[in-house]
Amino acid sequence: MGCCLVAALVISVLRRVRYAVLPGQPPVTAAFAPSPRRPAPGTMLVGLAAAPPATAPPARLVSAPVAAGLAVLAYVTAVALLDAVGLLVTGDDPLVGWTARDLGAAALLVAALLAAAGTTPRARSRLDDVSVACIAAGVTWTALAIVDMHVLGLFELGTVGDVLLHGSGLALLMTGLALHAPPKESSR
């Protein structure tokens, strides 16, 4: 069962991320089965109770910090890939700026992870889960792109690339806002 040590870690992390970010029912844990009945020979079951309906598991919270942390990772990876394939035009003195930026991104990631660990689960609707994830990820992505390009001036992209990079974050943000369901008003 040694492989399961690693399996347990990886699978549990993946499960957390999957149900924090994407829609879907969280897994059902083991429990008692509905109590079955079998009649005595030559008799019919009387008053056989229907199996109780399966209790819907509580919706898993969306952890905004988890979504933000994933956005940091995705953004940094995307920029690194763009740089690797030669689509970035970097500044004249990149070392200090990039180092500061990398440290900042790492700090943001650590902060997101710490915040995720300290978040108290709160039941939400599935739609809310997705919207919160989109909003958190969109804000993070957009902020990182603005800081990189327009505060630190680390790199430039062509017009199309500029629009795509900023637009990706904004699109996520707008999607999240559009999905966000307002609280139901009282009928009173």
Binding site: I11, R15, P27, V28, T29, A30, A31, F32, A33, P34, S35, P36, R38, A51, A54
Partner: peptide, 17 residues
């Protein structure tokens, strides 16, 4: 027994991961 004796296509009470 309770887990096994439910209808064949039901898996209530099983772990679903």
């Amino acid at each position: 027994l309770d887990l096994a004796l439910q209808p064949i296509d039901r898996f209530d009470g099983f772990t679903h991961l």
